[in-house]
């Protein structure tokens, strides 16, 4: 038994399914929910919302800023070339380089955080059904304990319009 899951036509029935799985003793992280659009009108759409992405973006910005500062400082000071009587290391022009690299750092850190925390597949979380694309909402349990599959099936079948499948 790899997975047991139900497909629901509406957010409300999916919400019921989630609630019943919880009542059957499952924690949020053991329930798999898939939808073709963000479901923020429903409680289940807010599971696992906490993220440090903002902080990682700031961190990336700081790294970028340091690279920008270091790059301009090290290269200009190690080979001072006089151009037009400007100071060898001048704040104003180099601030532009520092700014651009700060933003680049923040952007790249955001993307890396997204890919690592959101997109890289975790072990044992591969449940998928192409019908999700057509607007069905999938609620299911991956790698359930065999003895409890019956309970889960019952819980998933309860809401209106449910179609329960097993893999």
């Amino acid at each position: 038994m790899k997975a047991v899951y139900g497909l629901y036509p509406s957010g409300a029935s999916a919400q019921q399914a989630v609630n019943r799985l919880r009542a059957a003793g499952l924690a949020d992280r053991e329930i798999t929910i898939l939808s073709a659009q963000p479901m923020e009108d429903f409680e289940f759409g807010h599971i696992d919302k906490a993220t440090y992405m903002w902080w990682f973006a700031c961190l990336g910005g700081l790294v970028g800023m340091s690279i920008g500062f270091g790059l301009s400082w090290v290269t200009e000071m190690s080979w001072p070339i006089n151009v037009g009587g400007l100071p060898t290391w001048a704040w104003w022009p180099n601030l532009i380089i520092i700014f651009e690299l700060t933003m680049l750092g923040a952007i790249l850190a955001t993307i890396i955080t997204l890919v690592v925390t959101g997109l890289l597949p975790s072990k044992g979380q591969t449940l998928y059904d192409p019908e999700v694309t057509d607007g069905q909402i999938l609620v299911g349990v991956e790698n359930p304990v065999d003895s409890r599959v019956g309970d889960f099936q019952k819980a998933l079948e309860a809401p209106n319009g449910a179609r329960v499948k097993t893999l």
Partner: peptide, 20 residues
């Protein structure tokens, strides 16, 4: 041979620069 040559800082590759 300007002391403050406008051609120098605009060059991206230091082709134009000031000697000692």
């Amino acid at each position: 041979q300007c002391g403050n040559a406008p051609c120098e800082p605009v060059c991206p590759t230091y082709a134009s620069h000031h000697t000692e």
